[in-house]
Simulated assay, not measured.
Amino acid sequence: MLSDLRAAGAASLAPAAGLFLPELHHRRDIGLDLVQVNGIADLCHGYTQKRSKINQQMTRLAGELLAGILGGKVGNDTARQSLTAHAETRGILFADAENLMLATLADGYRLLSAEQIDRALAVRRGQTSAGFDTIADAMYMDEAAPTRL
């Protein structure tokens, strides 16, 4: 169970696509006007395009890492240095994906009033709570994570 929690903690918070789908799906509840919806939709599209490129790079590097591992290259110092560089690049791309998410969210929330941001965050919190409930159910636990490990 602890390894499952570690794996969940190692996963990216940045969605692969559709960063503003909660806001767009709940646009009436949040009180978005057409200009805001279009602005958020444009940011959502741009995020998805940029994140797709990051995902493609990470997937290619993961394939090369796996091929190196399965090809026995980890025993060769020179080849292992190349694999290590791939792993380091994947780490940078991982950070790039999360930084892109944060910057794009900030750009989107600049289009909203303070009240609309509060409503949008309430929608996101509700979805996150539902997600944690699903994880907890799948792990046969009462809570998604213990208070202390």
Rank of each mutant, 00 (worst) to 15 (best):
Q57S: 12
H45G: 08
Q56P: 00
Q49T: 03
Q56N: 03
S52L: 11
I40S: 10
A67G: 11
Q49C: 05
Q57W: 07
T48L: 06
S52H: 14
E64M: 13
A67W: 09
S52R: 15
K53I: 01
S52F: 11
H45W: 10
Q49V: 06
T59Y: 10
K50S: 01
K50M: 04
K50H: 03
L43P: 00
S52K: 13
R51K: 03
D42R: 12
L61D: 02
H45D: 08
K50A: 09
G46D: 04
M58G: 09
L43V: 00
D42C: 06
M58Y: 09
Y47G: 04
R51Y: 01
Q57F: 09
A62Q: 11
S52E: 06
T48I: 10
K50R: 06
L61W: 04
N55M: 13
A62K: 11
G63T: 12
S52I: 06
A67N: 13
A62V: 09
H45E: 06
G68L: 08
A67S: 14
I69P: 03
I40Q: 10
K53W: 00
K50Y: 00
N55E: 11
L66D: 14
I69Y: 14
I69Q: 13
I40D: 07
G63L: 14
Q56R: 04
G68S: 08
K53D: 02
Q49I: 06
Y47I: 02
D42N: 09
Q57E: 05
G46Y: 03
G46E: 03
D42Q: 10
L66I: 15
I69M: 14
L66R: 15
T48K: 07
L65S: 08
G68T: 05
Q49N: 03
A41Y: 02
H45K: 15
N55S: 15
L66N: 13
Q56V: 01
A41C: 07
I40P: 03
A62G: 11
L61N: 05
R51S: 05
D42K: 10
A62N: 09
T59W: 12
H45F: 13
A67C: 10
L43N: 00
N55L: 11
E64L: 15
L61G: 02
G63C: 12
Q49K: 04
K50Q: 02
D42V: 07
A67F: 11
E64W: 11
R51L: 03
I69L: 15
I54P: 01
N55I: 08
G46V: 00
C44F: 04
L43E: 00
D42I: 06
G68Y: 04
H45S: 13
L65M: 15
C44W: 00
Y47L: 01
A67T: 14
A41K: 08
T59K: 15
A62C: 11
S52Q: 13
A67L: 12
D42W: 08
Q57M: 10
L61V: 02
A41D: 04
M58F: 09
C44L: 06
L43G: 01
D42T: 10
S52T: 08
S52W: 11
L65W: 12
L66Q: 15
L65K: 10
R51H: 01
I54Y: 00
A67V: 12
I54S: 05
I69H: 13
Q56L: 04
I54H: 02
